[in-house]
Simulated scan of single mutants.
Amino acid sequence: MGARKPADLLFASLADASRRQLLTLLNAGAQSAPALARKLNMSRASALGHLDVLREAGWVEVACDEHGEALYSKRSQAEKLFFAECTALQTPAGPEPGDALDAQAAAWAREWPAEDVNVYLIGQRLLRLSAHIDQALKEAAASQGILPAELLLLDALLTSGPPYRQSPTQLQKPLAMTLGGITKCVSRLEQMGLVERTPDPTDGRGILVRMKPQARKILEKILSEATYGTDWVASSHMAPERRATLSSLLRELQLYADAEAARRSGEGE
């Protein structure tokens, strides 16, 4: 356990988007806390707090220049250890020791021996993962001054393909939102100059929502600044073929869930 501690700290310290941004900035060389704070538009105290976490985890080291100002730089040894751990994560290993959820599931199985404990575990793990995904969405949206629902709406317009426009009704399915909620998001994004409403040429009374170039820049900025959430970082640690397998299994599970929801909805009508 003791041998794992340095690597564990390296990974844990990257859970915060601001700390990942600080490390990205330090790729350019040693810099002072005030300079880093200005570039990230945060207070000096906040920058120092994040830098302290990175220093304790082993990511950065600090030295003073000839004027006595503290300069922070990335430790190459930490980066080497980090990438070595990432490589190890892609190597198939033996069975992992059980975690708290496995213990919880074992207790559940004792109470309900006739049920498949994996069905219980799948639900419990998805619940915990959904919390990570929800937090990641909030962090990514907040980094660009928009709300999570607004970020999802922009993503839905982007994935609709050129000319990146949809009717509010078309947006309902990918967003799983009410028309009122979509209208509210569109109004805010329109005020920010990120979308515009235009008449629907196929429906005299309808409108289309079109994503403007400024909105695409926001989506690009989230990726270029590496403001990735915990869920994204966690997925990147998996080998590509395992990610593909997981994606396929989750799709299968979603299809079954969608079909069951549709069946229940039909029974209620």
Rank of each mutant, 00 (worst) to 15 (best):
D102C: 11
L51I: 02
W59H: 04
L48F: 05
L89W: 10
I133D: 08
L127Q: 09
I133G: 02
A57F: 04
C86F: 06
Q144R: 13
P148W: 04
D99K: 15
H50M: 00
A47L: 03
G29P: 05
T91G: 03
A105W: 06
D52Q: 14
N118R: 02
P34D: 05
M42R: 11
A136F: 09
R38P: 02
A142R: 07
L81V: 07
R110A: 15
M42N: 04
L26G: 04
S73T: 11
E69S: 12
G58M: 14
E69D: 05
A47C: 13
K39A: 15
G49Y: 10
A142N: 04
E139M: 07
A63P: 04
A114K: 05
L89F: 11
G123Y: 04
A63Q: 15
K74E: 02
R110G: 11
R128C: 13
Q104I: 13
R55S: 05
S43I: 01
S46R: 15
A140R: 07
T87L: 14
A63Y: 08
A33H: 10
A88H: 13
V117W: 00
S32N: 02
H132C: 09
A45G: 00
E111W: 05
G68C: 12
P97H: 06
A70H: 07
L121V: 00
A78R: 01
A45F: 08
Q77N: 12
P92L: 08
P148Q: 11
D65E: 11
S130M: 12
L26N: 08
L54F: 07
A88P: 00
L81H: 11
V62F: 01
A142C: 12
L23M: 10
A107G: 05
G68R: 13
G98W: 06
Q124W: 02
A103Y: 12
P95A: 11
D52K: 14
